[in-house]
Amino acid sequence: MSVFIIRRLLQSVVVIWVMSLLVFGGVYLIGDPIDMLINPEADQEDIDAAIRALGLDKPITEQYWFFLINAVKGDLGSSFIFNEPALQLILARMPATMELAFAALFLSIVLGIPLGMWAGLHPNSLSGRSIMTGSILGFSLPSFWVGIMFIMFFAVVLGVLPSGGRGETTEFLGLQVSFLSWKGLSYILLPAINLALFKLSLVIRLSRAGTQEVIHQDYIKFARAKGISEKRVILVHVLKNIMIPVVTILGLEFGSVIAFAVVTETVFAWPGMGKLIIESIDQLDRPVIVAYLMIIVFMFIVINLVVDILYSVLDPRVRLQDVKA
């Protein structure tokens, strides 16, 4: 197990390094931030001074080297716009995004698995078919449009839920969270559903496919032949088997939930990392873009590692064992 983790960590370092090259190069190609940053009426002398101040006069290789040295020290540069360390800027907005992502993940699991299993157990019933049709809609409707429709319906027409923002938050373990107050919940509900919609459809499909496969296995028939209750057959024998693919996929997808909360955050004006990155791209705030992408890569790596370990907990056949002495 420990050998496995050490090897994985070494691989991760290489992945992060390659990613830094790609990100740095890519952002450099997008455009020159100076045009965005400087007053159009400034004279050439001011412009040159600004370029020098930001270090943009140096060749790209030197800029990259400088970035790399600082990154190893934990400094991912300072925002051109806010003049604050990019890392702090992002981390300050991370709890909001994480809360939204966890809320979405929670919804996908508690709704997706039961709905998917129901559809798998009753594939020809009206309810089963409706669930599957619904999941196709969840897959194919564009997230931003659904978000806007939510706002239209619940905030404008019915006026029961707020249209955006985060509202007031409660302090919990030193973090500002929404889910502990009714008011906060009313703010997070729509964005969470909006963000969950795609994952929810995915979980429904996975659970249904898993259920249909598992239900015909001999071990289910054998379990029934033992005379145990149908409830236990479904909730223990079937559920534990379909959890393996669901956990794997959800774990891997969790990174993308965080990364692509961008759209939902923009639509609902949710003050998270996604909203920050969109603004930074607009203004070509290179250090923030680079720092954001590096953080996302790092999160993906951590999540993958956690999924691998979780997977071995769920499936005894792949359980990683230390070699016995």
Binding site: D218, F222, R224, K226, G227, I228, E230, H237, L314, P316
Partner: peptide
């Protein structure tokens, strides 16, 4: 039927690889 299955009438299946649930002890 359920109260009889496993108690008064038991069944053994063909493939022993498939009759025990792989994820339960």
């Amino acid at each position: 039927m359920r109260s009889l299955r496993g108690r008064r009438i038991a069944m053994i299946f063909q493939d022993p690889m498939m009759t025990l649930n792989p994820v339960l002890r």
